[in-house]
């Protein structure tokens, strides 16, 4: 766009601190407009092709983002504007992404712990009841005569089903 700069960068020596506009050539606007119309046709066309659950969504969002960028950069002059204005604009999108992203970390994974708990039910009043083999280290020598009742604490972990009767 160097030509557009040339259009206004000279010849305004008024010196009274007036604002001098930054005028873009007409063909830039026509080009932008035709790009937007073309992409509208493309996005409608793409919707007739079945790309699956996420496929169509991604394509639609991609095209929309290109269109939005064109509007922002050229119609909204962001390309020639202060960098800070672009930072403001992008930060809005960034925070929107945080908002949607973290919220979906809830909605997409809700209730998953319940399923895990259902597989391994725990009695809250007696959490150690559900001990399984290997939870407590058992000396090999002690494990063998467990049936004789000579090693009561070890027996609890080796044969959990039998322990409640003893307590």
């Amino acid at each position: 766009m160097s030509t557009s700069h040339a259009e206004h960068d000279h010849g305004h020596g008024s010196g009274n601190g007036d604002h001098v506009p930054h005028v873009l050539p007409f063909k830039v606007y026509i080009g932008t407009f035709s790009t937007l119309l073309f992409l509208t046709v493309v996005t409608v066309g793409a919707s007739y092709v079945d790309l699956g659950h996420m496929g169509n969504l991604i394509v639609a969002l991609l095209i929309a983002t290109i269109k939005a960028s064109v509007v922002a950069l050229i119609f909204m002059h962001l390309k020639w504007d202060h960098k800070f204005h672009a930072i403001i604009f992008v930060s809005a999108l960034l925070f929107l992404a945080v908002f949607i992203g973290i919220t979906m970390s809830d909605t997409q994974f809700r209730g998953e712990a319940e399923a895990i708990e259902a597989k391994n039910p725990v009695d809250l009043k007696d959490p150690f009841k559900a001990e399984r083999a290997g939870d407590v280290a058992v000396p090999k020598a002690a494990a063998a005569p467990a049936a004789a009742g000579s090693a009561a604490p070890a027996a609890g972990s080796a044969a959990p089903a039998a322990t409640p009767a003893k307590h």
Binding site: T43, S47, V71, M76
Partner: peptide, 22 residues
């Protein structure tokens, strides 16, 4: 006002494919 109006357009650029197309 132009900037505001472009934003209205920009939102619609997303609404149209999301609601009508996919």
């Amino acid at each position: 006002v132009g900037l505001y109006w472009h934003l209205v357009d920009l939102v619609w650029i997303y609404l149209f494919p999301l609601l009508y197309l996919v």
